[in-house]
Structure formats: structure tokens, C-alpha cells
């Protein structure tokens, strides 16, 4: 099996609203695909179709070598799903939750028990294992949820916004646990609104907007599409900005962009670093007070902005 997830022309309509307008996705086995997009872009609908929860109006999809509509049971036996909310039973303990899911995954009672214990240990929940889940913190619930989706040692893991609403520490911990699964050879499809999350975890990224994949590639390829490195200059007073813009325009072929609020100017470094020296000496001869001077690579946020003309949802930096 070389291709773990393949979707062709997935369409889904809810009444008047076209949630998916022909989504194509290919994920080779063992890779992590980050599906990036704002709320309502079609990320969750895509995951639900691939995880056999929802039938597409048209198009085909196969997961782990089985057709999602014709062989849903075979697909379900090979996937793990972690949705947007921790889908665990609040009133049961962590251990009971995992044993229940393990039993329903057809592991057999004994194996389900052993697997539950191992996962509790791995996800640092052993101490809380016999407490009802409603006493857990948000991060613990998400860890339990991820553990539940790994019960059957799935070949393909769907993570639908796995860290939305988590604090920094919990996010980093969850990322680490996801990386470990990838290290074990699991294929992962991860949806996220967080550019940084996709950047951190994904081998390839599909940017989805308005129910379509509008760009895909490695994080570096996507960043390359927006243009390369930029020189970023911040000065001490706003009054000096026009002068700085004029000087910088002279050292690069690209046109500068100005951020008035931050007293910053940036220009694309089209001919490599040679412009940096020119800019530095020009600024020095001008005698302006430079508070920051550096080269920045475009973030995925820039990519998103360039592709869609708007920012990618609430940007949170951990």
C-alpha cells in the first residue's frame, strides 16, 4: 500500500450551502498531511467523509486501500479518529473509556485491558486513570481522546483540530505524542487553523478554502510561492518612515511595504543578501534610529494571505 488516503472530486452540499466543491487529496503511507483552512472551509466535512461518518454527494475516496462507501467496516478497522471535541464519556473513568473503546474495536476483553493500561501509561494518565473524566483538564481529555483513537493501532489517523483550545504546554505535549505516532509509521491527516501547527507536524500541506484545495505542497514550497526572504527594518519614530522607504526602495527591485503602527518597513530580497549591505549603509548615512533589522522568511500566514486575500482565522502563537 503506497497511497494511504486518496480522495477524488469529493462534493458535499447541505441545502444551499456547498460545503465541498471537488476536493482532491492524496497522502502517501507514512506521511503527515496538514489540511489548513479557516472555519467553514470544509476541513471537518472532508475528514468525516474519509472516516466513513458522512457520504459524499459525488467523488470517490479510499482509505488504507478500502473504499469509504463500499467497504466502511474495513476502513473503520484501520483508522483512528480524534474529533474537534474530546469524544469520551465524561462519567466513566479514563480506564473504563479506553477499555470500552478497545472492546468495541474487537480487541477482545483481555487485549483491550492491556492496551488501555499501556496507552494510559504512554499518555501520562495512569495517575488519573480511575477518576471520572469530568474531573480531567482540557489537555488530559484531549490526550485521552487521542489515546482512544489509537486503541486499535490504526494505520491511518485522522486528527480534526486536535489542539484547538489547548494551552501551550498541552499543545506541545500533544504534538510530541502525534510525532511519536508518525515515527511508528502511522499516516496522519491533520486539520488545523493554526499555521504553526501545520508547519510543525506536516510533511505536506493542503490549503483548503471554500470547499476546495487551493494550494498544496511542502511548507517550504508554499512559502516559496509567496516570494522568498524579506528584509525587515523597524525604526524609532514614525516620522522617519518615508525617508526609510525611499532609501530601501533604492536597494531592491521589489517595492517596500510599510507597517505604520509598528514603524516597520519590509522589502523583498530579490537578489539575495547583497541588498542587505546596501540597505545597512544607506540607513546609516541617513542617520535614522534603527531599532530592529533582520531577515524574515514568510510564514504560512503570509501564504494564506497571499492565496485567499485574507488572514487565516484567529492566529495564535504558542
Amino acid at each position: 500500500m503506497d497511497i494511504a488516503i486518496q480522495a477524488e472530486g469529493l462534493r458535499k452540499r447541505y441545502g444551499d450551502h456547498e460545503a465541498l466543491r471537488g476536493v482532491d487529496i492524496t497522502v502517501p503511507a507514512g506521511e503527515v498531511l496538514g489540511v489548513l483552512g479557516p472555519n467553514g472551509a470544509g476541513k471537518t466535512t472532508t475528514v468525516r467523509i474519509l472516516a466513513t461518518l458522512l457520504e459524499a454527494d459525488s467523488g470517490r475516496a479510499s482509505v488504507a486501500g478500502f473504499d469509504v462507501t463500499k467497504q466502511p467496516r474495513q476502513v473503520r478497522g484501520r483508522i483512528g479518529l480524534t474529533g474537534q471535541y474530546a469524544a469520551v464519556d465524561e462519567r466513566l473513568t479514563g480506564r473504563e473509556n479506553l477499555r470500552l473503546i478497545g472492546t468495541l474495536y474487537r480487541l477482545g476483553r483481555k487485549a483491550a485491558k492491556a492496551r488501555a493500561d499501556a496507552l494510559l501509561e504512554r499518555f501520562e494518565l495512569t495517575e488519573a486513570a480511575d477518576r471520572p473524566v469530568k474531573t480531567y483538564s482540557g489537555g488530559m481529555r484531549r490526550r485521552l481522546d487521542l489515546a482512544a483513537s489509537l486503541i486499535g493501532e490504526p494505520a491511518v489517523l485522522f486528527l480534526d483540530e486536535p489542539t484547538t483550545g489547548l494551552d501551550l504546554t498541552s499543545r506541545l505535549a500533544l504534538w510530541e505524542m502525534i510525532r511519536e505516532q508518525v515515527g511508528n509509521g502511522v499516516t496522519v491527516l491533520l486539520t488545523t487553523q493554526y499555521l504553526e501547527e501545520a508547519d510543525q507536524l506536516a510533511d505536506r500541506i493542503a490549503v483548503i478554502d471554500g470547499g476546495q484545495v487551493i494550494a498544496d505542497g511542502t511548507p517550504d514550497e508554499l512559502k516559496g510561492k509567496v516570494g522568498g526572504e524579506r528584509l525587515q527594518v523597524t525604526v524609532g519614530s514614525r516620522a522617519q518612515l518615508p525617508e526609510v522607504v525611499r532609501v530601501l526602495a533604492g536597494v531592491s527591485a521589489g517595492s517596500p511595504t510599510v507597517d505604520e503602527a509598528a514603524c516597520g518597513v519590509s522589502i523583498p530580497l530579490l537578489d539575495g543578501i547583497s541588498a542587505i549591505a546596501g540597505a545597512a549603509s544607506a540607513l546609516e548615512s541617513l542617520g535614522v534610529e534603527v531599532t530592529d533589522f533582520g531577515v524574515s522568511r514568510p510564514s504560512l500566514d503570509d501564504v494564506f494571505l497571499a492565496l485567499t486575500g485574507r488572514s487565516a482565522a484567529p492566529v495564535r502563537t504558542p
Binding site: A51, R73, Y85, A87, V88, D89, I101
Partner: peptide, 11 residues
């Protein structure tokens, strides 16, 4: 709370 989603994704 998503439990039905989970059950429906199980074999």
C-alpha cells in the same frame, strides 16, 4: 459531545 462520531468510526 462527539461520542456518536467515535462509535460510528469504530468497526
Amino acid at each position: 459531545n462527539g461520542l456518536v462520531d467515535r462509535f460510528r468510526s469504530l468497526p
